[in-house]
């Protein structure tokens, strides 16, 4: 999807100032989410430093970089998960489909319904598989009746490639599944709410290689319908699943570009050092 990345001309945002540090094309022509000059502080500590970046519609963008580079923190800004941390403060602007997500008029609840999230460690609720998936549709009032709810659960599990594995034991606890199945359950749970964007925070770091492969396969299938932002430690994973890659270093967005380009012809010195394994 490299052809979606275009120049600065056709853009409808006024502030197109790219911080000096960033190399590469941060803008896309049909952005779903846009971050402008985003900085995040934990108490006094600067965790994300003046990042400007677009997330395109129906693309997978990977955030990579060494530990503590702020990639997860930025990810959590996209659905305001950082609100749950008292000392965390954000500056700058993030929009979804042109709406400011920090606008007081936007309910954080509906934002999170639009921007789903999958966490590092599989975290199914201690409820049945069915109830895990049905939780989101129930709280948001998405299903008008139980038939519709059943259908949402079935479709979500199908979409996550889990249906055939669990269809006979929907009433068993979600925690009884294997780690990889649990993570796909969490993805299905996010899908069930009908999001536009899915944020994934190192979704495979707790999984074995086979389970990881299955989740990666799922991500590739989901890219058609959703924008996916994935934070990963594994360079190979970024190379395998993402369309674009953004490299972060010490809270700054150093370089962003087509995944192929980043991995074959990195421009910035830091990016090159990192992907060639000289540090990190």
């Amino acid at each position: 999807m490299a052809d979606e990345v275009i120049g600065t001309k056709e853009v409808n945002f006024q502030d197109r100032e790219v911080p000096d540090e960033t190399v590469g094309e941060v803008f896309v022509n049909n952005p779903r989410m846009t971050a402008r000059n985003v900085s995040v502080y934990y108490a006094e500590k600067l965790a994300v430093d003046d990042v400007t970046l677009d997330v395109g519609s129906s693309e997978v963008i990977a955030f990579v970089g060494p530990s503590g580079c702020g990639k997860s923190t930025l990810l959590r800004c996209f659905n305001r998960m950082n609100d749950t941390i008292d000392i965390c403060r954000m500056e700058g602007k993030i929009n979804i489909d042109g709406d400011d997500i920090n606008d007081p008029k936007i309910d954080v609840v509906s934002l999170r319904a639009r921007v789903g999230m999958v966490f590092q460690k599989p975290n199914p609720f201690p409820k049945s598989i069915f109830d895990n998936i049905a939780y989101g549709p129930r709280i948001h009032g998405l299903a008008r009746d139980s038939v519709e709810l059943d259908e949402i659960v079935e479709r979500s599990l199908e979409r996550a490639g889990l249906w055939s594995e669990v269809k006979d034991r929907l009433d068993q606890p979600g925690t009884s599944l294997s780690g990889g199945q649990q993570q796909r359950l969490c993805i299905a749970r996010a899908i069930a709410v009908g999001p536009e964007v899915i944020l994934m925070d190192e979704p495979c770091s707790a999984l074995d290689p086979i389970a990881t492969a299955k989740v990666e396969e799922l991500i590739s299938e989901l890219r058609e319908q959703y924008s996916i932002v994935i934070v990963t430690h594994s360079m190979q994973q970024a190379a395998r699943v993402s369309d674009r890659t953004a490299y972060f270093h010490l809270g700054k967005l150093v370089e962003v570009g087509e995944t192929k380009q980043i991995f074959t012809r990195p421009v910035h010195r830091l990016t090159e050092d990192y992907i060639t394994g000289r540090f990190g």
């Binding site: 998960m81 749950t84 609840v109 999170r112 789903g116 966490f119 609720f125 709280i139 948001h140 709410v193």
Partner: peptide, 17 residues
């Protein structure tokens, strides 16, 4: 565990939900 709360908030639960 905080991860359960995160999961719920990530799906768009209100606090009380």
């Amino acid at each position: 565990p905080q991860s359960l709360r995160d999961a719920a908030y990530g799906l768009g639960s209100t606090k009380s939900e």
